Amino acid sequence: MANAKAAEAYGADILVATGYDEGGILPQHFQGTFTVVPTMADAVSIPVLAAGGINDARGVKAALVLGAQGVSRWYLLLGHLDEAPVAPAAKETLLAGSYDQVDLVSHDQRSLMTPGAKQLAARFKETNDGRAIDRNNRPTRRDVAGPAPGEVDDNIIPTNTGLDLL
């Protein structure tokens, strides 16, 4: 929590507490969001926003009980809002996916198991060297927004661990 305290000392108005159950680029620690939130909320006096793996009303309530002042449910917005900047093919794949179709493709990335992601996950399990995979497959804003139709099979589609709750 040294970083949280330092951010507060430097004048941060709000902090985001995220755990390893988030989507996108994973944090370097393995604690879940519901471990990080109360620890951070107890360590600082500024508001804490919970993020990562919070996909339904139960998760929101839990985050608030644990000390968060609010939550971020970014993947919910990506999957369900018509105006979300997500390619229709990626949105369909995300909403049709389930937790058992999600795996690590490197130390820092989790994805739905598209054919391309399956190849990366297999290489990662074989070599345990995520650096080369991350270097060549780091999600960009476009990747997070989703590949175009016909490109889904070759791409990483980042997701959190609560995919079944979207």
Rank of each mutant, 00 (worst) to 15 (best):
A57Q: 15
L66Y: 05
A57P: 13
R73A: 03
A63M: 04
M40Y: 05
G70P: 01
S45W: 00
G52R: 07
V36S: 15
L77M: 12
L78Q: 02
F34C: 06
E92T: 14
L78T: 03
G59E: 08
G59T: 06
V48Y: 06
V44T: 06
P88S: 12
H80G: 09
A62C: 05
Y75D: 12
P47D: 02
T39G: 04
A51G: 10
L64W: 04
K61V: 14
A50Y: 06
A50P: 03
V71P: 02
Q69V: 02
I46E: 10
T39R: 06
Y75M: 15
A43K: 02
A43D: 02
I54D: 03
W74S: 01
P47M: 04
E83H: 08
A57M: 11
G79V: 09
V36F: 14
F34I: 04
V44W: 02
G70W: 04
L64I: 15
V44L: 01
P88C: 09
L76Q: 13
A41L: 10
V37F: 11
V48C: 10
F34S: 05
V37L: 11
A90P: 00
N55P: 01
N55L: 04
S72Y: 02
L76N: 12
L78F: 09
L64T: 07
T35M: 12
S45I: 01
P85G: 01
L78R: 01
Y75F: 08
P88I: 09
L66W: 08
W74D: 02
D56Q: 11
K61S: 12
G53C: 13
D82S: 13
E92C: 05
D82H: 07
G79I: 09
V65P: 06
L77G: 15
N55F: 09
P85H: 00
H80W: 08
K61D: 08
A84I: 14
H80M: 08
T35E: 13
R73Y: 00
G52V: 13
V36K: 14
N55S: 11
D82Q: 08
